[in-house]
Write a protein that binds this DNA or RNA. Structure first.
Lengths: 105, 105
DNA sequence: CGCAATACTTCGTGATACGATGTATTACGT
DNA sequence: ACGTAATACATCGTATCACGAAGTATTGCG
């Protein structure tokens, strides 16, 4: 998919991936794989950004002797998803503008 | 609307604005206004980019003593719109992933 | 012992939307 | 005649951001 098209989707996708249950980087990538692919460097950059903007909180936990950083969505993160749903109406109107065939004979 | 969300839409929107009829910068902005707002600097940057990638051709014409640059979509430009329609399927699947409520429990 | 998988991090690069600013002309009100 | 808005296009600098490359470290398997 066009890289520019992905940009607005990535943040909100990551939030959606931790919405129902806390998760960690490696798992998030795997969960999103069927929908949208992203490299590790991209994901960790996004997670850092979402943490800075307080869309999620981080907690470090040990799992099998290895450290994992678990991410938990905040109220602001949930609102961010809601805002995306609002934006979606505009996106749809743009989609119609772009795809509408020229029906003037 | 979220600026990142607009990124993937802008190019294809501009192409859609000249699809049925050649147009020029100032007019394009006005035509797209109801759907998506962009500054002049953004539009002219995009037009330059689309010209470089041969999605459109340019012709300068005089109109009321003033010069106008008219933009004409190419075959590649039309294909670009078709590719967007293909991408749309992926976008929809992402949208569903993001908006689906947690129905477990 | 070596290699894949897991897990996270850092760095540099290229793309790009935008505000600010500039140039020039036409049109309109007073 | 004068000033202001509208039309029309261009350039520059900045901030944001996705990505590949590369690195660190551990677990687990053959």
């Amino acid at each position: 998919m066009d890289i520019q098209l992905k940009r607005g989707l990535l943040d909100v996708c990551v939030l959606a991936a931790i919405r129902d249950e806390d998760s960690y980087g490696y798992q998030i990538i795997k969960d999103m794989q069927p929908y949208i692919k992203m490299s590790e460097s991209t994901l960790y950059t996004i997670l850092k950004r979402l943490e800075l903007s307080e869309m999620l909180t981080v907690r470090t936990a040990e799992h099998g002797g290895r450290l994992r950083k678990y991410y938990h969505i905040t109220e602001a993160g949930i609102r961010r998803i809601e805002e995306f749903k609002e934006d979606w109406k505009e996106i749809l109107s743009i989609y119609r503008f772009v795809t509408k065939e020229d029906t003037n004979a």
